[in-house]
Design a protein around this nucleic acid. Structure first.
Lengths: 293, 293
DNA sequence: CAATTTGCCTGACTTAAGTCAAGCAAATGA
DNA sequence: TCATTTGCTTGACTTAAGTCAGGCAAATTG
């Protein structure tokens, strides 16, 4: 049985190797060797300082240096010293470099769009790709504190609300819930964290400050593709650390018994069920947890 | 919305590029350049003649020749003339080459197995990979006539029966159905076709000879991952061609109204509903189609 | 049968990719 | 302050990968 699964994974590997080979070839159509194209694209996606570039591309410092000189000669890139430490250097795209980067982006986007249009069930295909990407990159998931009003945060929250609407017996409308005000979930009053798998959001959690000594955990959500990888545990640990740093000693949260795996998770990770502490119509279970330091 | 899907496909591409890069590097651990390793593996997977090797690997004949000489020097490969056309040459592995190929196989299998064991939902992951592999390789699906008693045919039929068991209102047990005897679905009496996506089965269809002038289409099945790609249409067209070649002029089939998309498909592709023509307990819809030549 | 085509091999290249050691300037530490 | 470390660059390599033209023998065609 496992043999069969392994064989299928290997078919997947072959299919995908063929595809990425084709993608590489299309990159070469712009008349630049793959190495240089990769550097240009990495800079375009925000990897400025050379250390990160080297780590991401997995290349030697000598090689990176040479590739950068080549791109500089083409007028696509310029490098400047890091203001904080003049040994370090930061690469960035010139206007011309931005244009070239955009051309590569268009190429990739067009290929992706072509795949979508010739598939009968694009959403299913992309959901499958999400699952695979999360499985392959499970060590690479990063989290960052974000403003709860930024675009990615809103996208996470929209997915979260959509899921609630589907799973709560009576549906869910944000307007009727006690939507936490963004200010209470932003520094310095609270916190909002987003988990990213290679730049796209796959989870979030909010900390809403209530009184001086207690705060509420809100909007814990993990994308379906990333479930089971321990991301909820990690987000919760990080938001608890944020709470500790803000001087909070007691956390509370509310949830609904229809969300069985969430309730299970809270019980397993040190939360204690308490009586209702708000008048929100949706939750029917309430928990609290004391932070020890 | 499509922008979002495109971004997710591109994240998938990046995740997978990283992974295949790592795979390539593990291949290099065996001390052989990637090109030579690819040739060795392609020969190991049955690609003997040099023309197919070149097409599959996408390399120039000069380069392939040189890589083969290298593998010959290592004692892993030997080439002989094609008995039918002495200009063509056929490469095959020596005993030592088989051992080396097996070592690469073990490496790949171990990586795949590691991915499985660290994932919470291995079946879901592999199903997602199947879907993606079929989407990427949809042009590459090949069909072949097989013996209905061979291992892949039995695997297809098992999946087919499992699906029927889940979808028919009263379940499904093969034993109670009129299981066509294999001899009636083998040449020269009938036909059985399997569709392969890169070596793994993704669909099948059988033709069971009944009388001199008519035959029954049985076991039309397409793997979930490959649905919507027009594979049923293709399998049906090929089995109709097989039927024509066998001198059959009239085809019949039975199905169940619970399989809505199948019924729809038959109606759309020239089948006409007729009265029950057998006493199988499972079907409740019967079709026939005259073959014109 | 001779002329042509096909399939493969070889030698002579070019380009890309990667490695290694030396060197230089800015930062850090005793 | 001086020695050391860090981050980057450069020059001098090696290896892999790929291209192209010429050549040869077997097959095919007129």
């Amino acid at each position: 049985m496992t043999d069969d699964l392994v064989a299928r994974i290997r078919r997947f590997n072959r299919a995908v190797t063929r595809e990425t080979g084709a993608l590489d070839n299309s990159f070469l159509d712009r008349g630049r060797p793959l190495g240089a194209a990769r550097v240009l694209n990495a800079i375009g996606r925000g990897m400025g300082d050379l250390g990160r570039l080297r780590a991401y591309l997995g290349i030697d410092s000598g090689l990176l240096s040479r590739l950068l000189r080549g791109l500089e000669r083409e007028g696509l890139v310029e490098t400047l010293a890091d203001p904080g430490d003049a040994r370090r250097r930061i690469a960035r795209l010139t206007a011309q470099g931005e244009a070239e980067f955009a051309a590569y982006e268009d190429l990739s986007n067009a290929r992706a769009a072509a795949l979508l249009t010739r598939h009968p069930r694009p959403e299913a295909l992309v959901a499958a790709m999400d699952l695979v990407a999360c499985a392959l990159g499970q060590e690479q998931i990063e989290t960052a504190q974000e403003d709860p009003r930024c675009a990615v945060a809103l996208a996470c929250l929209a997915s979260y609300y959509a899921e609630l609407a589907g799973r709560l017996p009576g549906g869910f409308e944000v307007g009727r819930s006690r939507d936490p005000e963004a200010a209470d979930m932003s520094a310095p009053r609270g916190s909002f964290r987003v988990a990213y798998a290679d730049g796209l959001p796959v989870g979030c959690v909010g900390l809403k400050r209530r009184e001086a000594d207690w705060a509420e955990v809100k909007r814990l959500w993990v994308a379906p593709a990333a479930r089971g990888l321990g991301l909820a545990r990690r987000l919760m640990a990080e938001i608890e650390a944020d709470a500790g740093a803000l001087g909070v000693r007691l956390l509370r949260l509310d949830t609904n018994s229809a969300l069985g795996e969430a309730t299970e998770f809270y019980r397993r990770s040190g939360w204690r069920e308490i009586a209702r502490f708000n008048d929100d119509p949706y939750p029917d279970l309430f928990f609290e947890k004391a932070l020890c330091d």
